[in-house]
Amino acid sequence: MSDISLTVNGRQVRATVEDRTLLVHFLREHQGLTGTHVGCDTSQCGACVVHVDGKAMKSCSMLAAQVSGSTIVTIEGIANGADLHPVQAAFKEHHGLQCGFCTPGMIMSATDMIARHPEGLDEATVRVELEGNICRCTGYHNIVKAILAASQAMSKASKPKAKKAA
């Protein structure tokens, strides 16, 4: 057993876990944060993507003990109260989902992608960057559209004049 201490969505969390506990199980079963999904369970599909110290990672392929001391953000932690995060809003606006199972991972990967590309995104880049996220419903078209729209909205919002940022 390991005593772990980490920040989850801004909240300081302490727990004693079996060393083999995967981060995704810790989040879902110990923390009740079931927005992070287990899809393939083999680190291919990306439904389990969360941010660890600001970087997108697959929580099904990490131990909770490995991230003791780290800061975790899950899909539950990105909205600002009742205001959706711009990426969430764009997925809603552009209908970037059907069944919604892959969506939390898609959105966490998308926010990471947008942060790593302050120069902006084009369709080809988005598609390459989405390599680790699998959707079996939509054929990606609206997902890509949503990410491009969010990227634009966020770069506008980050300029001093605009006040649209969520």
Binding site: A56, M113, R116, E129, E131, G132, N133
Partner: peptide, 9 residues
């Protein structure tokens, strides 16, 4: 190598 999330680790 892999995908962005894999490359982060």
């Amino acid at each position: 190598i892999g995908d962005p999330a894999v490359r982060h680790r």
